[in-house]
């Protein structure tokens, strides 16, 4: 039972982790905490729903169209909404993302209505069943898919940021934009790329979670909040921080939900996180100094 809950926690946690990753990448490179992040992903889920369920297009193709759309939204938001106030007021950028949240919620309502739309799992085969002395663990195939895709994305991201010239250039911009320019790095392009990556990750997270949550305007609210919390827990700094933050929140939440109270699982998880922040305000893996802010 405990193992089953921990496995379930890892699956949910892996979703929190990539949402946190997407937030952190955009934040590190451009200094903006994107409060519309989940809602940007939600729009992609609706795009998928439109192509797959309404038009009847192939699952995989619709999936990639939706992710490309997420990438485009990421690009457009950074370039058109945030760039103009970038050097004027960092606080404005945050509030613009809050405005964007309202707009996206309204747009979804306007176009697709308030109904919960269903999206089928990609994999519906028999669940993986592990038997051992203490009991059995059942993992549905869709959850294995989530775990696999998330792991692949994280590995790809680590390789990109650590091994490619462009990835290193992006990290350079995150550390010091001005010095990066002196190297000949087009920091403006890197900022766009960071939001394109962030936008596609957000879309991916929404598509992975959609079969469970259904598609509706606020579908990503809890994922967004938990993603934020995971990022904060990880110190809003690093990839490992986001992963550890996400997985631990996923596990805490599932255990609390099972053994304490289903209704209050978010509250309890948040309380634990606030407690951690009181002891260590810079997060679990964050460093005391803050470069952006």
């Amino acid at each position: 039972m405990v193992f089953q809950q921990i496995i379930a926690g890892i699956i949910t946690g892996s979703l929190y982790a990539i949402v946190a990753l997407g937030l952190v990448i955009a934040y590190k490179v451009t200094g903006v905490m994107n409060f519309a992040y989940g809602y940007m992903g939600m729009i992609s889920a609706y795009i998928f729903f439109t192509f797959f369920s309404m038009i009847g297009m192939n699952y995989i193709l619709s999936f990639f169209i939706a992710i490309a759309f997420g990438a485009f939204v990421g690009y457009a938001v950074e370039r058109r909404l945030l760039r103009p106030v970038r050097n004027i007021s960092p606080a404005s950028m945050v509030i613009i993302t809050l405005g964007l949240l309202l707009v996206l919620e309204g747009v979804a309502l306007q176009i697709w209505g308030n109904n919960y739309q269903q999206i089928p799992n990609l994999l519906n085969g028999l669940p993986l069943i592990l038997r051992f002395e203490g009991g059995i663990i059942v993992i549905p195939q869709q959850n294995l898919l989530i775990l696999g895709v998330v792991t692949a994305v994280i590995i790809a991201l680590i390789l990109y940021l650590n091994l490619t010239f462009q990835g290193k250039a992006m990290r350079a911009v995150a550390q010091n934009e001005e010095i990066a320019k002196l190297m000949g790095i087009n920091s403006s392009l890197m900022m766009s790329i960071s939001w394109i990556i962030s936008g596609s990750i957000g879309a991916l997270a929404a598509l992975l979670v959609a079969p469970q949550t259904f598609v509706y305007p606020d579908m990503m609210l809890s994922l967004q909040i938990m993603g934020f919390t995971a990022a904060v827990l990880g110190g809003f700094e690093s990839i490992p921080g986001s992963i550890i933050g996400g997985i631990s929140i996923g596990i805490i939440e599932n255990l609390v939900g099972t053994y304490i109270s289903t209704n209050l699982k978010t509250t309890f998880s948040l309380a634990i996180i606030v407690a951690i922040l009181i002891v260590k305000p810079e997060g679990l893996l964050g460093s005391a100094k803050s470069r952006r802010v």
Partner: peptide, 17 residues
């Protein structure tokens, strides 16, 4: 038949920009 949050969000963004 128009969603209020769109107008509110747009107002917020336009004001800030």
């Amino acid at each position: 038949n128009i969603s209020i949050t769109i107008i509110q969000g747009v107002a917020l963004i336009v004001i800030l920009l």
